[in-house]
Amino acid sequence: MKGKEWYQADDVAEEYDSKRFSRGGRLIDDREKRAVVEAIGPVEGKDVLEIACGTGRFTAMLAERGANIVGLDISNAMLAQGRAKARRAGVADHIEFLRGDAARLPFPDDHFDAVFAMRFFHLAETPAKFMAEMARVSKHLVFFDTFNRRSTRVVYNWLLPMGSHLYSASQVERLLDDAGLRLVNGEHDFLLPYGFYRKIPNGIAREFRDIDTSLGETAIGDALASVSYWTATVGDGKT
């Protein structure tokens, strides 16, 4: 089972957080949340859209920080998990969850202050369409991550059930340019792939993470990082 079919399965949604963000996966969760917060900045009173919101890890976090947030996903099972998480966090009244297609977003132009997508583009069948839609509905900021072609992810990718798409930096730059977006910042991380961290206890994972981070700060880090976080702004004069 690959792609959309795998992602929308009920059992995948039910086990998604526990399989990916327990044990050493907590380090991944922390890093991804920090990346989102740093990219978007203060969100109180801002209108924010999350594409492929999944189980609502980021929607709930940003709602707690005062955002007016919409979480869109193609999977009803994932959305159910997101709604439950929002209720537990006490922010259900501040999030609107919608089922929809990221290639045809049901919003007018310039509708959101920021639009972001995490863990999305590796499954994207038509990345140019998705990027164009994110740019269309954003007044200013677009943020997303990619799994990288020149990394240990290449080996790990063979084992994945969904057939992840890996990107080079030049591919990302072309996607941004074609969508009328201007790259502001790119951060590169995790020389060791996510799957490695998920397999080991958190305490041991922290030791490897310290080594990983140290190597990531060298010249080899950017070249071989398995994950990149990209921040872009709309480049046609919108503010």
Rank of each mutant, 00 (worst) to 15 (best):
A169Y: 10
G54F: 14
I200Y: 06
N185T: 11
I211S: 01
P106Q: 08
R88S: 14
H94C: 06
F21P: 10
V12M: 02
F143D: 01
E44F: 01
A128N: 13
D29G: 05
F116A: 00
E50R: 05
I211D: 06
H165E: 05
A67L: 05
E207Y: 01
M61W: 05
L215F: 11
V184L: 14
Y7F: 14
G45Y: 04
F143S: 00
G221E: 11
M1N: 00
L160D: 04
F97N: 02
K199I: 05
F120S: 07
P42N: 10
A63H: 10
E5N: 02
W230V: 15
E14C: 01
G235W: 05
A60Y: 07
E173T: 11
N157P: 01
V48M: 06
A67D: 03
R34N: 13
R182W: 09
T239W: 09
Y167S: 04
A9Q: 09
M162H: 13
Y16K: 01
D47C: 07
V36D: 03
V91Q: 04
V36Q: 03
M118L: 14
I204L: 12
E32G: 09
D210M: 12
A117T: 05
V234Y: 08
G54E: 13
A117L: 04
V12N: 00
R87V: 13
G71L: 06
E64T: 07
M134E: 05
P108W: 00
L123M: 14
W230N: 13
F21R: 14
A225E: 08
A84P: 00
G54S: 13
M134N: 04
Y167V: 05
D109V: 01
S226G: 15
T218D: 13
E173V: 08
L176F: 07
I220V: 15
N185K: 15
A63I: 10
G82C: 09
P108I: 00
R20M: 04
L183V: 11
A35D: 08
L160W: 02
R149S: 12
S75F: 02
E64C: 07
I204C: 00
E217H: 13
V172K: 01
T233F: 07
L98H: 00
A86L: 10
R153F: 12
W158R: 14
S214Q: 10
D93S: 09
F58S: 15
F107L: 02
Q171I: 04
F97P: 02
D236R: 12
P161V: 02
H122W: 15
I40Y: 01
H188I: 04
K199G: 05
L181R: 10
D109E: 09
L141F: 03
V172E: 03
D101N: 13
G216A: 11
R136D: 02
Q81Y: 04
S228F: 12
D93E: 09
T213M: 06
F208K: 10
V12D: 02
L27K: 10
V115A: 00
A39L: 07
T152Q: 12
K238C: 08
H111N: 06
D178Q: 15
R65A: 08
A84K: 15
V36G: 03
R83L: 11
R31I: 09
D101Y: 06
N202Q: 06
S22W: 00
